[in-house]
């Protein structure tokens, strides 16, 4: 084998190595974007958890017959903030929490005094805000995951991804109860 062949092989190897490095770096960037997007959801989920005690305090005096819902809300919140949970459990608990909060506010609609109380109106608006932010964060997460999955599954990046442990991520999908969930205004102004 002549020196020309040797140089050729080295050049090809360098080109392949450079391509692999670029693919790898691209995958890392996309994975970080996914993690970053998830952390945004996490922040918003924490905000929703923080909202629970304030909601319970505000409505406790009015909603005696819905005491079970409030207790359930407190329990789920305690589980969600316990720590050491995997992402799936965390998301599941958060979804339950969202459903319960929506239910509390839906019931509150039938209590005129409660409905018009300034603190409850503000809490409802804060919840709407958090829900809208969570929805936006989930859409951002899904966009990042879609981008990442395209990277992981398309050729030739899939070779690099499979050998370096980049696995496909799962998209957020709205829970059955969430699909129709639309923020409800207590003050229909």
């Amino acid at each position: 084998m002549g020196i020309g062949w040797l140089i050729g092989i080295v050049v090809v190897a360098l080109v392949v190595l450079r391509a692999c490095i670029r693919l790898y770096n691209g995958l890392v960037t996309r994975r970080n974007a996914v993690d970053n997007a998830f952390s945004t959801i996490d922040v918003q989920m924490k905000l929703r958890c923080d909202l629970v005690p304030r909601v319970v305090d505000a409505v406790r005096g009015y909603m005696d017959f819905e005491r079970g819902v409030l207790e359930q809300l407190t329990t789920v919140r305690a589980q969600a903030t316990a720590g050491g949970l995997d992402a799936a459990t965390r998301v599941s608990l958060d979804t339950q929490l969202g459903g319960l909060l929506s239910r509390v506010f839906a019931v509150a609609e039938s209590y005129p005094d409660l409905k018009s109380a300034g603190s409850v109106v503000m809490l409802q608006r804060t919840l709407n805000e958090v829900e809208a932010q969570i929805a936006a964060a989930r859409r951002t997460y899904n966009a990042a995951v879609t981008d990442y999955n395209i990277g992981v599954e398309s050729f030739p990046a899939n070779i690099v991804a499979a050998s370096l442990g980049f696995n496909r991520r799962v998209l957020f999908e709205a829970a059955a109860g969430e699909r129709d969930a639309v923020p409800v205004g207590l003050s229909s102004r």
Binding site: A135, A136, A137, R139
Partner: peptide, 9 residues
């Protein structure tokens, strides 16, 4: 990007 989606539902 998150705020863009928060606005553009």
């Amino acid at each position: 990007a998150v705020e863009a989606r928060y606005i553009l539902t």
